[in-house]
Write a protein that binds this DNA or RNA. Structure first.
Lengths: 162, 162
DNA sequence: ATGAGTGCAAATGCTTTGCATCCTG
DNA sequence: CAGGATGCAAAGCATTTGCACTCAT
């Protein structure tokens, strides 16, 4: 699975084309950048970075394209509330559509993907007793804590941690 | 555990007083309404409802009070992205501070609390192998699907479901 | 009395929308 | 060459903030 982002890009392009959506230069630039981005960027993040090499890029186009990808199932969205230090409340976009969960570091704010194992199925079983009749479609899990890098940092601002 | 909301209210009042915060009529009204609310309301929801019996209530006061409760550990927040039908992206507040998860209905948007006590739930939260060194502090789980009521509704708008 | 809390309105930040123009298919 | 896509700016929400005033302690 080397260069997963390259495969992603190709898959997105092929599928959008197949669905009759137009492949404008703007969209290709967005797809190229987004498909390779593991940082769970916000729409504004992408816009800012795209603007560097594509000065006429507009919010509308970024949102519009992300929306198209969303409809086509090539993006997952992630909403974390304001963290410990009020970082960001904007929606984050994730090009990884494999079932997975997220681990958010309370110190640096970094987000790590956690592949979903078969254990998730066990979890949905347990739900039956708690909410009888609820038909589970998806399970999202959010781990909050301290990432390996920040846990290792003994000095500096690690003490932000309550 | 009858009238859990009454206990909650008393606990909140006692604790805020203990922490030296002022118990204004506004705050008491907010606490009274919020502590009994199982619907995971947004700040705006609370504001709108409070306004009926307390016409001078302002956003600032509602947010300010929720913030105080948050700092005192009497509230949990919940951020769902825009659902299937773009309902709401606002932060939701939950007076239930027992460890629990949430089940969101894709049809009616209803949110149900799921106690996190079951052993299966706890067991499935391990992630050591996936993110080595990550120090987990909390785990939030979000189930999406269809609630019992909506699953039973054969006619009407149930077909909204993709 | 005194400073935390309140209320209003203006400001901020993210996202959406209206609409004239452009360009892919 | 037709309709989807773009770009700009203005509009929409949720939330925050500034500041004079009020009231719980």
């Amino acid at each position: 699975m080397r260069a997963a982002h390259k495969e992603r890009f190709d898959r997105m392009v092929a599928d959008l084309r197949h669905k009759g959506l137009k492949l404008t230069p703007q969209r290709l630039a967005i797809l190229r950048m987004f498909s390779a981005d593991e940082s769970h960027p916000t729409a504004q993040d992408l816009y800012a970075r795209l603007r560097v090499t594509f000065p006429t890029m507009s919010f509308a186009t970024v949102y519009n394209t992300l929306d198209a990808l969303l409809g086509a199932g090539h993006v997952a969205t992630l909403n974390l509330g304001p963290g410990p230090r009020g970082e960001a409340r904007a929606t984050r976009f994730d090009p990884n559509t494999e079932p997975h969960h997220h681990a958010v570091c309370d110190v640096c704010g970094g987000i790590t993907d956690i592949p979903a194992t078969t254990r998730a199925l066990v979890a949905s079983d347990a739900l039956h007793s708690a909410a009888p009749g609820f038909e589970v479609r998806t399970v999202e899990r959010l781990y909050r804590g301290v990432c390996a890098e920040c846990a290792g940092t003994k000095g500096s601002e690690t003490r932000l941690l309550s």
